[in-house]
Amino acid sequence: MNMIEVENLTKRFGSFTAVDHVSFQVKKGEIFGFLGPNGAGKTTTIRMLCTLLRPTEGTAAVAGFDILKQPDKVREHIGLVAEKLILYEQLTAAENLTLFGRLNNLPEKEIKQGIEKWLNRLHMEQWRNNQTGTFSTGMKQRINIARALLHHPDVLVLDEPTLGLDPQTTRAIHEFILELSQEEITILLTTHDMNEAESLSNEIAIIDQAKIVAVDTPKNLKRVVSNGDTAVIDIEVANLNETMLFSLKKMENVASAVETEPYNLRIHMKGDNAASAIVGAIAAEGGQIRAINTVEPNLEDVFLHFTGREMRDKSTGKVAPSQRSLWRRRSSRVR
């Protein structure tokens, strides 16, 4: 049974298209990862599924209810952990949970039991009567997740759930998410963290510039990048320069070439005898190859394969290498 069915979901804000004819399905109990850079349209899609935004075109069903025709039913079956915390800092953990339990029409007894259960599972029971404003970010996020689960939703929506958390809390939350999926809770997870997407998701949708470019299991996605006539290699060239990179990118055997580290190229190759053609081309330009390694592709490579761009978080200020000159990068990175 499909817990989420999305069909041609589109959202435009004026002339800007934030989500462009997105379609996908999520089976019950699955963890579905939504992977893409910031601004790709992940949050907008999620907000439409949570009935917080009205789609411009297309529709979706959550837990069997249409988001346009039965928004209240959808709200009953969905738990939202948004990018911003949904918690009142002046209320205690228990008060926050009680409030949202009541807004979800839970009987008082069930609210009490729910608070007990989820605070215990998230190791927050001793903090129940403290105002959440005094909590650390990690603690707040635990209460926030408990709040989203209190009315036992069928679908839990997690929008960048570990953004800005320390590694320990991140790991704890990852384990908790895996536990939840064992309990038949369907999880829709957005992230721009490759590892998070890869280690949690049963299926991943790669979204870029408002469109889904690929949907499959992590394994299958990676297989697309390295099977038969495609593969990924790292080449270290001692005297790498702009012209060399430029002529490599023009080659038929090169799907993409990116300088991932100084003097180090990651090349997605395709076609017969691609490796020797590439090595030959570098040698022809007078390049001194120090090392060649084949690479087990990760989701970063998958993203690169489908979009031709490196996926970097815009918010960290890192820019895709092709947008900066090689010279400047060399002078600024002293090793």
Binding site: L52, D72, R75, A82, K84, I86, F100, R147
Partner: peptide
């Protein structure tokens, strides 16, 4: 701005 309004709006009320 805090984001709590989304919590209220996504509740069945």
């Amino acid at each position: 701005e805090l984001g709590t309004l989304d919590g209220i709006l996504s509740a069945p009320i």
